[in-house]
């Protein structure tokens, strides 16, 4: 367990010293959402209608943006190879890197969400449900994305390939995230949606580090 926190602390320190990365993710998120009023026009009821979907899709693409670098840099400078040769199981290493990724990208997205919800004229009833769905959903995005980030190691044009691999897998999270917010706005119960999202997260927690570690072992063999 101490190995887990050692890696989380190191990745947070790297993110903090390299700066930029998490700011860029949040900046992308904000700009992508801000583009919609320009594109579809400023009518308040249209923005309110599409707000939850737009915020969710933008969050999903923003999370995607930073995933390529999750293992790539450590792979290139030999760190990943050394991490695979420590007494800490590789699955724990992957889980630690996912945790650090969520803390540096998912969490800032979550902080920016209320502001964007106001900006997009999201009805008040959906406000906290949107934040809650993102709080449950973004860890799933980091977890599922880690499989893709591990699979593209050693390939050129990894970023595009990563999107093709991972975006289809994000669809369930997106559907239940958006429909929970829409349900809350129409006054329906959102418990079922939130439980399914929590179920996706619980399933991803053990499976994704395991699959990611497998993919990294493959990449290190070449």
């Amino acid at each position: 367990m101490s190995g887990f926190w050692t890696i989380v602390r190191r990745d947070l320190k790297l993110a903090q010293r390299q700066g930029m990365d998490s700011y860029m993710v949040v900046a992308f998120f904000v700009i992508a959402v801000v583009l919609f009023p320009f594109g579809v026009g400023p009518e308040a009821n249209i923005l309110a209608r599409i707000s939850s979907g737009v915020i969710w899709v933008a969050a999903l693409l923003a999370a995607m943006l930073s995933l390529e670098r999750l293992f790539q840099i450590d792979f290139e400078d030999g760190s990943l190879e050394l991490m695979a040769l420590q007494p800490v199981p590789l699955e724990v290493v992957v889980m630690a890197k996912i945790t650090a990724h969520w803390l540096t990208t998912g969490l800032p997205l979550l902080v920016a969400t209320p502001l964007l919800a106001v900006f997009m004229n999201l009805p008040y009833e959906g406000f906290w449900v949107l934040v809650l769905t993102l709080a449950i959903g973004t860890p799933s995005l980091s977890l599922i994305g880690a499989i893709g980030a591990a699979l593209i190691l050693g390939s050129r044009r990894g970023g595009v390939l990563l999107s093709l691999l991972i975006l289809p897998l994000y669809i369930p999270v997106l559907i239940f995230g958006v429909s929970a917010v829409d349900g809350a706005i129409s006054g329906l119960s959102v418990k079922a949606h939130l439980l399914i999202m929590a179920g996706l997260l619980v399933a991803a927690l053990p499976l994704c580090p395991w699959a990611g570690a497998g993919a990294i072992r493959q990449a290190l063999e070449t």
């Binding site: 101490s2 190995g3 050692t6 890696i7 190191r10 320190k13 790297l14 010293r17 390299q18 290139e76 400078d77 030999g78 760190s79 190879e81 050394l82 991490m83 040769l85 420590q86 007494p87 800490v88």
Partner: peptide
């Protein structure tokens, strides 16, 4: 194992680089 790559992180100091690997053991 000492391979071809040095695995030295540019933004960490020498002490931080070495103590990270030592802390995993």
């Amino acid at each position: 194992y000492v391979g071809h790559a040095d695995a030295v992180k540019p933004v960490l100091t020498v002490t931080e680089n070495i103590s990270f690997w030592a802390a995993l053991r």
